[in-house]
Design a binder for these strands. Sequence first.
DNA 1: ACTCGAGCGGTTTTT
DNA 2: CCGCTCGAGT
Length: 733
Amino acid sequence: MVSSLHYERDLNQSQLEAVYYSDSPLLVLAGAGSGKTRVITYKIVYLIRERGLSPYNILAVTFTNKASNEMKERVVSLLGQETEIWIKTFHSTAAAILRNKGNVFGIDPHFTIIDQQDQQSILRKIIKQLNLEPDVYKPGKYAYLIERAKDMLLDAEGAHLEGFSNDSAFFDIYRVYEKILKMENLLDFGDLILQLSRGLKSCPEALSELKKRFRYVLVDEFQDTNHAQYEILKLLTLPEGNICVVGDEDQSIYAFRGAKIENILSFSKDYNGVKIIKLEENYRSFQSILTASSHLISNNTGRFGKNLYTKKGEGEKIKFFRARSDRSEARFIAEEIHNLVFKNDYRYSDIAIFYRVNAQSRVFESVFSRVYIPFMVVGGPRFYEREEIKDILAYLRLAINPMDEISLSRIANKPPRGIGVKTVEKVVKSTIERGLSIFSFGENNSIPRSRISRVTDFIELCAELNRMVPVSDPPQLLKLLFDTSGYLEWLHREGEEERIKNLEELYNAVEEFSKEHPGSPISDFVEEVTLSQGGIEGDGQGDRVYLITLHNAKGLEFPVVFIAGMEDGVFPHYLSGDNVSDLQEERRLCYVGMTRAMERLYFSAAKVRKLYGRSIERGLSQFLMELPSELIDYSDEGDYFTPSLISGRRTSGLQGASLWGKSPRSRPREREVPDLEVDDRVIHEQYGRGKVVELEKGVASIHFEDGKRMKFLLKYTPLRKDQEVGTSESEGG
DNA sequence: ACTCGAGCGGTTTTT
DNA sequence: CCGCTCGAGT
Ligand SMILES: Nc1ncnc2c1ncn2[C@@H]1O[C@H](COP(=O)(O)OP(=O)(O)OP(=O)(O)O)[C@@H](O)[C@H]1O
């Protein structure tokens, strides 16, 4: 579908100015929903169409892969043709350049990118090797420190010199870690940025080649770039200043990952003659949502300040519901969703539920499955983290990079083929640790003759795959892998139906990938999976409610938003730190969440929440008190027996708010599901008499007497069998 | 080499 | 509640 391009129609004056401007570096600084992303999108199109830049000459950096896909689609649709434009995250940009130019920078371009799980298992090994106790010297902590050091462009040596940490074990661990990664040709996420920046600094020819290529650079979500990323931007665009960045200081939520809001301030200093454009009209949300979110964020300090307005109406009040437990919070939301869908004509996919930590999705998943609300968990316990998927990917990684010890140890014995830990160690010692690939494993004597063929057969299998990677059609290669590795057969033997299904899904994803990127080798697929950490769309589409963390919601928008778990300790999270800047970041997170809502916004909280199986009493989130009480409709799950709210001393800004809904129920009703069959006559409390025309998974399609046809979730629908008229059950023929 | 289960520890947030 | 590591036993 091609949408026509019309700058003046689709953009307001300030946006137009930003799109047309190109005399100097440009900083678009504006609040939520003001059309910053749209500016970037249209500016790309404008540069190509009106300024004659080739798509090849443009680099656009987004924050997530999801965002880059969306932007790309939009650009393609506006241009009316496919392009090979680089709209990528920092990490995929870096990966792509390193694959290309790695040689020049002294990096083998067949490197494997490792995720934090691999990272931690390597660290665990190192810590043990150094004779330290992993329970004291926690791998996770060192992974974190190393990543932060890399954000600052510090390698082990540099970190040491700079006195980056006062943990004496840190440098030793970092050093060994660095050595192992180098030896096995692995890069972690931080390395992608670090190595690129290094390469560009040390290799002027490569840099100038890239500068020639990227005639204009655009950056979305600039407030969340870290030092290293900003350095790369400067390398690419100084002194020319061919750059446009957009951002909002109130939406900086990744400080924990090294993001620096100060980059916004630095930008005007580091570049000459920076033009700043502000956007003030919000196109996304109703006024009530805007007012409430502005009110909340005004509690932060160090803001540039903004004046957002909207021409949309006032909108509904914001609703807040306090439930007894996390489970009944989920039931309440389920019921509300049901109403929104069946009474207010929303689609499921118009609705999103945001939460602070991934673990919160569980309750929703369980309750929603029970009442047949279709949902999708964005970025949760991910598809690609399942064991069988990781295994198959490890085969591929090893085939691509035969020095990848992590992948080797993972699959050497899956399926069991008589290669144990010890044997793997021997292989590693004689190959990888000597800077050789496992394919060079030869006449090795430490392994008994009787067993050596198991090893050589396995290595031959890998070598075969390795030869096929660059030349094979990815789906075919995958099939071959399933068979020749014996993996699929193994699952069959073990009766692992679920896992086999998952592998089928993986196959579908690869097929899909191949369709979208004809001619690309399977290594590209593996890379995409690694970099996007499992957030594949695939078939996940369809009309479903979104379950998503607040962090992941950045940049998205939904007609209806629920922010769940508005409890002290959950949000702000008790581990988020207690200094002012930590609290302010949590507040920004809340602001981000609220401003995703277009039409309706709900908050909810539970009085008692399960944590590690124990029930814990929870107070309310302080952010609720920071909302203007006149904009909030408060309701409480009938708690005549629950004293905590009454005795609980905090009366808060919510005091005096009206109870919404005339008859607050003591609990969301769990209706008796009437025992229905197709053709049964029924009576609906609201719509009157009708007939069941279809029944599926607890959803009934009813044909009413007035001709209307509607679908209902039985569990939540006031339906009963029609006794009087229904007389003969077999009447409907 | 491989399987199984007791025991433990741990929860932010993500590319 | 859940997943992971480690140790015992086959
Ligand atoms: N000039 C415009 N006229 C009408 N709608 C617009 C205009 N500009 C943007 N929009 C719409 O407003 C919404 C928000 O736009 P966009 O996502 O670009 O804002 P943003 O500033 O990037 O938001 P955020 O920072 O909150 O993610 C989108 O639905 C977009 O289509």
